[in-house]
């Protein structure tokens, strides 16, 4: 059975199309939904977890329709939203016990001990959550989500706001869960994390999927090497053969792609100087998902005016 399957899934907020005819098939894997803030990631998760009705299209989770068989879907899944919602006045064990009761788990105490130890929280289980770090709170939420052994786990930005070590640990746990046979559907805007940990990713831009594949295949799509150059001055002419302009990244470096970066660096350097630009630094590296994203998402915000109303709608409905 296919864990998640969407067919033309669409959601409007008024005239704003948050998710646009999304058709995906997710197997037994760690599937990452990537995209910038406001690209429709959370809206997609809300529809798949039955919390929001699609405007058009349909989706099935573990074979159950999200609209007509919502109750069956909820029995198969767990959902961890990005808000970090754990009760700080309760102990870790009490937080998990609440979910064990709500799921109607038999052998409750054993189950609670098991999920707490899976998430490395046994030592601190009887402390108030007030004293937990951000990473521990997130792991506690994972423990809550695991009490009923869901088939599909939905994680919305699981590493947001955590430090590097905590992020690494969360991803280790996610991989362990996948090895135990769980399907994990995760959203993130941290491309590098998805690059390391997801089996397949979908890149979302303004509600539509622009690419779906494994991170390595997506990277091989654009090029072998990425050359980034920090320059001042304008460049207008056509680039030399064997080089393509990808665009400008957040540090306002010009990015180029090439099949053999080491040979093209001197050529690019000369060309840039001929164009009258001053080159401050130039380097080449393997491509990352960030580069893939930049290459695929060509129409950037600058082209349009800033629509305050749309922006607010998006934030509220994130």
């Amino acid at each position: 059975m296919i864990p998640i399957e969407t067919d033309g899934l669409t959601r409007y907020y008024g005239s704003l199309c948050a998710v646009d005819t999304l058709s995906l098939k997710v197997g037994n894997e760690i599937f990452g939904l990537l995209g910038p803030n406001g690209s429709g990631k959370t809206t997609t998760v809300l529809m798949l977890t039955t919390l929001l009705r699609p405007s058009r299209g349909s989706a099935r989770v573990c074979g159950y329709d999200i609209s007509s068989q919502a109750q069956d879907v909820r029995r198969q899944i767990s959902y961890v939203p990005q808000d970090m919602a754990v009760d700080i006045k309760l102990t870790g064990r009490e937080n998990v016990a609440l979910f064990a009761k709500l799921y109607g788990i038999s052998h409750r105490d054993d189950t609670i001990d098991r999920v707490l130890s899976m998430m490395d929280l046994s030592d601190r289980a009887d402390d108030l959550v007030r004293t937990y770090s951000g990473g521990m709170r997130r792991r506690l939420e994972l423990a809550q989500a695991l009490v009923h052994e869901p088939k599909v786990l939905f994680l919305d930005e699981p590493t947001i706001g955590l430090d590097v070590a905590a992020r690494k640990k969360i991803w280790e746990h996610i991989r362990t869960l996948k090895d135990r046979g769980m399907t994990i559907f995760v959203t993130t805007h941290y491309m590098d994390e998805a690059d390391h940990s997801c089996d397949r990713v979908a890149i979302l831009d303004h509600g539509s999927v622009v690419a779906v594949d494994s991170p390595s295949r997506l990277k091989s799509l654009i090029a072998k090497d990425i050359i980034s150059a920090r320059i001042s001055g304008n460049v207008t002419g056509t680039v030399p053969d064997g080089l393509q302009i990808l665009g400008q990244n957040e540090e306002s470096e010009m990015l180029f792609s090439s099949d053999c970066g080491s040979e093209k660096v001197p050529i690019l350097f000369r060309w840039l100087e001929e164009q009258g630009a001053t080159v401050h630094s130039i380097s080449f590296r393997e491509p990352t998902l960030d580069d893939v994203f930049l290459a695929l998402v060509s129409t950037r915000e600058e082209a349009r005016g800033f629509d305050d109303h749309k922006f607010r709608t998006m934030l509220r409905r994130r």
Binding site: L51, R74, Y79, V80
Partner: peptide, 9 residues
Amino acid sequence: GFLNKFLAL
């Protein structure tokens, strides 16, 4: 964010 978690149960 608690309500979202509860509603998905």
